[in-house]
Design a protein around this nucleic acid. Structure first.
Lengths: 229, 229
DNA sequence: GAGTGGTCTAGACCACGCC
DNA sequence: GCGTGGTCTAGACCACTCG
């Protein structure tokens, strides 16, 4: 009798995946579908809206809704808390602080963070292990002008990522993924050969228009980021 | 007077980013917020639902909604159509078919695609250029058992990706990102040194429970995937 | 049991975008 | 203009879950 928005969404998605409604073709209007399914228009609207958000259909006022030609626009990757990611695999997590210093930001960092020359930053190098083998190398820079508390904080037991989420309420983030070659330091820390290709994630965290912290995470050799949709 | 769900969402997000509502703390119920904002509960519900989808808050029946402790769960990356990605930069797109063959799937491919031994596949190697410089190397395998039309298709002018979207209505996809080292072939095609670290995207496309196609996209040296949220 | 979110309805008005 | 999606409302019932 009463179709839920999930039923309707699944049914429409079925018609698309089975090829009954082909890419580029027009889908009946919300009013028509509401009648077909015996539901309110708001219910049909929610089903269609979610399909649009997922990149399966395109909607335009007056012209109606169409099945998208290229079936997708975006992929979502989970950003795990490192400790959880490792523990979910049933492996033991261990954290180690390798190096900690307070310095004047080098030029490349000033450029990256839009900092004035001579700004002081805390620079940390940390390692994350899974069952004793290196999992992730973390190079973290914290802007002390914006977060002076970071100068005195103790990162020997708690990693900077975990500490930072307790300090910064919420923030705009820019994430970048690329490939890099292991230099001597990375090779030693990640237990791999110099020159080995490694997956690198960089994150810039903004707050109130300024950059609070920059982190460069280099994953163990062979690491993959995977997602389904 | 009348607050839209966008207004409400922005206002709540503001309270969270400004630290008025701290991570872990309880947010007023929908009913209370509806009164505060002078809106219907459905309107508040939509604002809160979207904040939950974006990983900003957590909701549970009876216990209510809380600001998440770790402010995020996922990042979205746009999956561009290569041609568009290049043309949006104001650069000229060019496609080239490097190699095409129909073969029995090698063992590693059978394993990856859950194919029976001896299954025939079409294997294509293509290059995508931006302003004449190599942008992306594409290694594509198409399961001919599921898509026999692919055997006769001509990929000299149209890339397999563009052709496939016209053939497969919609599909489940698995995406994987990793770092790889350039071998001699890749180095020649992408005009870089052997051993250079390169970002690789792999995609498995399923249809009706079976794998239709597998593609390995290797990006030009220094390529970054970037997103904000 | 009772509070909270999850969803549906019927109706309404608005905004965009073709014609 | 007018059709389509975008959103809001007021009210309702249900489902989960905590005490």
């Amino acid at each position: 009798m009463s179709a839920t928005y999930r039923d309707i969404k699944a049914d429409i998605l079925g018609k698309i995946t089975r090829g009954e409604w082909k890419p580029g073709s027009l889908i009946p209007s919300e009013l028509e579908l509401a009648e077909v399914y015996g539901a309110a228009r708001a219910t049909v609207n929610r089903a269609m809206r979610e399909l649009a958000e997922e990149g399966i259909i395109e909607r335009k006022r007056k012209s109606g809704s169409r099945v998208r030609l290229s079936p997708l626009r975006q992929a979502r990757f989970d950003i795990p808390v490192i400790r959880h990611q490792i523990e979910e695999q049933g492996r033991a997590y261990r954290y180690a602080l390798v190096r900690s210093e307070v310095i004047e930001a080098p030029d490349w960092l000033c450029a990256r963070l839009s900092l004035p020359g001579g700004a002081r930053v805390r620079h940390l190098t940390c390692l994350h292990f899974a069952d004793g083998t290196p999992w992730l190398h973390e190079d973290r820079w914290i802007n002390l002008t914006l977060l002076p508390r970071a100068e005195a904080a103790d990162f020997s037991a708690m990693g900077p990522t975990e500490w930072l989420v307790t300090q910064i309420p919420f923030s705009a983030v820019e994430i970048s993924i690329s490939a890099t070659a292991a230099d001597a330091t990375l090779a030693a820390h990640l237990d791999c050969a110099v020159g080995e290709p490694l997956l690198m994630t960089e994150r810039l965290t903004h707050w109130d228009g300024q950059t609070v912290t920059y982190v460069r995470l280099v994953h163990r050799p062979g690491h993959r980021m995977t997602t389904r949709y």
